[in-house]
Amino acid sequence: MIRIKKLLVSLVTIAALAGCKSPKRDDYVVAKSLNKDDVIEQSEFKFYLDLNAPVEIRGEYSHDRSIDSAQVMYYGTPGAALVQVFSHAAINSSLKEQRLKEQQEEANRYIGPLIEASKQVTHVTLTEDMSDYVVKQLPVAGDKTVNVKPIFFSNQDMNKLSLKLIAWIEKPKSSKTKSRKKLSNLMYQNIIEVHGSTWSEETATALMDGQADIADHYEALFVRAVESLKKDLSGTYSQTPQQQTLHIKKKNTKQFLRASVIEQSCEYVVIKNLRNWILHYPASYVTNIQNQC
């Protein structure tokens, strides 16, 4: 009996310790659209971005949390066996989280030189030409100013950037609930994701060596995302056409994406995925829809 107790204590300790390592999940949100009555006209659009915070640049990482797990033999009384099952579940869960965290860290290590080359990029440089829209004070809940948080990603080759712009508007204090769930206290939440084109070898070298202004590339993605956010808040994207499986060119392979095309131009295809996130891809990357040019 003492043996089992010892085993359980050690299992729970391992689980608790492993649980300390948690991966970043701020690049994922559940989308929530604005009510029809709350739409924000494009002329009234304002956003808040913490200008003192550093720009976040991360490596594109694998989301695979699968782990190899040996067969486990549960023993003892039914109660003890049940505790072992829960311990097993806790350990597995921790190992999965640990794997994801390691993948995120490894992806960041890969792009170390790009992070170094992008040190001069700040939130101030991103918003240089957007002073009309930027609010410098933290918005009061309910005043319809959008909070935004940009997270940039780079591929391992460090020749392609993408941006996930997380955007949210808090409900007025009077209509906030006591719910612990963040979503129920928000009027709006979404992700605007913008993918840039792959840089040529010469461009990549020039940017890494500081011979070309890398900030322009970050700013271009940010400006596109903010323009798209304006449209989403004003109700432009409220009609969602039929879904289809899109083929997206990715290095030497193809990536597939189930989504609805909501906007198309010579330069970009804008789609709404099944999570209602808004994604922008360079038009030449979407290979199975007719080019509009």
């Binding site: 694998s62 499986t245 083929h247 990536q255 189930r258 099944l274 999570r275």
Partner: peptide
């Protein structure tokens, strides 16, 4: 593999659904 969270029952599992259509394609 599902990109991001998979357990989204209220949204009709968009992550798993997308991964399924990717496998089909």
């Amino acid at each position: 593999v599902v990109e991001g969270e998979w357990d989204e029952p209220k949204q009709k599992f968009p992550g798993v659904t997308n991964a399924y259509y990717q496998a089909v394609e």
